Amino acid sequence: MKNYSAYLIDLDGTMYRGKEVIAEARQFIEHLQANGIPYRYVTNNSSRTPEDTAKKLQNFGIEASVEQIVTASMAAAAHIKSHFPEARAFAIGERGLTDALKEVGIEIVEESPDVVIMGIDRENNYKKLRNACLYVQQGAEFLATNPDIKVPTEKGLVPGNGAFIKLVENVTGVEPTVIGKPKRHMIDFALEQIGANAEDTIMVGDNYDTDILAGMEAGLDTLHVHTGVTTLDEIKNKDRRPTYSIETLEEWFK
């Protein structure tokens, strides 16, 4: 096993499942800390702020600071500010997204936007989706924080943001620019924050279609853990396989 100088770590399905902590997660993080290895939590969950996410981890007994959190909303806001600095945004999403947009000075509007940005919104409704479709057809840039079709919870899999962006894509015929995993935008954003090189960093996650593919796209080695979405049998059927695949995080440092 190669020694890595930095780790990017998924949350849902890797550190916890919904309201339940994954037993080996705390020990995994404690090992990184004990060896002075820097890491960032990299999550496609666009609904929570970094403060919310850090608090959730802390409540599970997992060490986390706000500075260690990288969300798809943060990366999306940075992307919009960089590529469309004067853009006005129509946002479907929760506080994690709207706070991230406001943090970098992006104006959120209900009419005539330059950008439509979609994140998970548990108060979503027909009017919001209808307006998103209309604005994209009128020429607004279409972006999405993440494409997760399903999300693991303690009760089972539930719809993710990808289920809703597919609706808008099917109506408009326009494919969104995805910022979160499996695209590399958020990985590059996290690497820049941590000051690490791709070749010396490993991406850790449970979902092949997001975590593992994002790591591959960004040139990182990848560690697949069988505690969330993608099973070992599914991994065996992939043409491109993760660098490593283990049952639980407890196995990694043995």
Rank of each mutant, 00 (worst) to 15 (best):
A163W: 06
D239R: 15
L101W: 03
N161M: 05
L249Q: 01
I92S: 02
H79E: 11
G139R: 12
T98I: 14
K150T: 15
A78L: 11
A140V: 08
A75F: 08
D206N: 09
V178I: 15
G156D: 05
T71G: 06
N124L: 14
L57I: 09
G180F: 04
P152V: 07
D99Q: 14
K155P: 01
A140I: 06
I37E: 05
E30P: 04
V225C: 06
I62H: 03
E24N: 11
F84I: 11
E86R: 07
E192I: 12
A54D: 02
G36Y: 08
V168Q: 02
V116E: 05
Y4P: 02
M74H: 07
N161P: 04
E217S: 06
D10K: 00
G162D: 05
L8W: 01
E111R: 12
N125P: 03
V168H: 01
V116K: 08
V70P: 01
I165G: 01
I165E: 04
S82Q: 15
M216K: 11
F164H: 05
E251N: 12
F28A: 09
N237F: 06
F90S: 08
E111F: 14
G228M: 03
K166S: 15
P85Q: 06
A198R: 03
T53E: 07
H185C: 10
M15D: 02
Y135I: 09
I22M: 08
M118H: 11
E192V: 13
T230S: 00
G96T: 05
L57E: 04
T71R: 08
L143Q: 10
E86Q: 11
T172H: 09
Q193D: 14
Y16R: 03
A6N: 07
I117Y: 11
C133A: 10
Y208K: 00
M1G: 15
F28H: 05
V104A: 06
E123T: 15
I187P: 00
T14L: 01
S46E: 03
T230P: 00
V104Y: 05
F253K: 09
T177N: 09
G61D: 09
A100Y: 03
P159L: 08
H226G: 04
N170G: 13
D99K: 15
E251K: 13
M118R: 06
E20P: 01
S73F: 13
L8T: 01
E175C: 14
R26D: 15
G205H: 01
N131L: 14
K236Y: 12
E63P: 02
L32S: 07
T145Q: 06
I179F: 05
V42W: 00
G36E: 14
G18L: 05
F253T: 12
I9A: 00
K81T: 11
T49S: 11
L223W: 00
T210D: 02
Y39N: 06
K166N: 15
A163P: 07
A75C: 10
A23Y: 14
S47P: 03
Y7D: 03
N146K: 07
A190N: 05
G36I: 09
I149Q: 14
P147E: 08
I235G: 00
L97H: 02
T43W: 01
L157G: 07
M15G: 02
T53V: 07
K56G: 08
I9E: 00
K56I: 13
